[in-house]
């Protein structure tokens, strides 16, 4: 554990909590992609199956459980409790366009051809692209609520901090996991355009709107 990883984990946790609180407080999930949230729930489910097979630390298990519970809670709020506020006609990205190719890739490129390892690889690849329905939704409506943009910034920062962590671990421990690194870089690159808009607009007090 190093400071970059800890900050990355906390940033990830912050993102998840911002989104949950936003939905709970406003009693609305307008502007949030339910597809992305389903994909994140699937990411956590397939990645954290090792909760049952491997114990690493209390911190590790507790964070995994919190991520899992929060992501299912978000999906529940969106599709059941506050379903009336869900903007489904703007959330039109087809999940199978991500899940099917990513599933195929996980079968072909992995560290070890075992069920748990393939599911872990699947979750790493899927996480890299799971935000696309959300970004697609914002590009369709042309804007995002400020709180939604804070959520996206925290979520994007998490993987960017992990990249710094991987560089650090490579030099200090000689540890590297090429699958996680490549997917993590792809994931971070997908947020770059958003980071630019966030810094140039949201941090100056304006709402996030896309240039016409």
């Amino acid at each position: 554990m190093n400071i970059f990883r800890l900050l990355g984990d906390l940033s990830h946790l912050l993102a998840i909590i911002i989104l949950l609180l936003k939905i709970w407080r406003t009693r609305s999930c307008a502007g949030v992609s339910g597809k992305s949230q389903i994909l994140f729930a699937l990411v956590f489910t397939t990645r954290y199956l090792d909760l049952f097979t491997n114990f690493i630390s209390m911190y590790n298990s507790a964070m995994k459980l919190i991520y899992l519970v929060c992501s299912y809670a978000t999906v529940f709020l969106m599709y059941f409790k506050f379903k009336a506020t869900y903007d489904s006609n703007h959330d039109t990205f087809r999940m199978e366009f991500l899940v099917v190719p990513v599933g195929g890739l996980a079968f072909l490129v992995n560290h070890d051809f075992t069920p748990l390892e393939i599911l872990w690889t699947f979750s790493i690849y899927l996480e890299a692209v799971a935000i696309l329905p959300q970004l697609f939704m914002i590009s369709k409506t042309g804007e995002a609520e400020t709180i939604t943009s804070h959520y996206l910034f925290a979520l994007g920062s998490y993987r960017a901090l992990y990249i710094v962590n991987w560089v650090f671990r490579f030099y200090t421990e000689g540890f590297f996991d090429l699958i996680a690194i490549v997917a993590g870089c792809v994931q971070t690159i997908l947020y770059c355009d958003f980071f630019y808009l966030y810094i140039t607009k949201v941090l100056k007090g304006k709402q996030l709107t896309l240039p016409a």
């Binding site: 990830h12 990645r47 090792d50 748990l116 872990w120 090429l178």
Partner: peptide, 10 residues
């Protein structure tokens, strides 16, 4: 390189 099955990162 990561040990398959035992991942310490989240």
């Amino acid at each position: 390189r990561a040990k398959p099955g035992g991942k310490d990162e989240l």
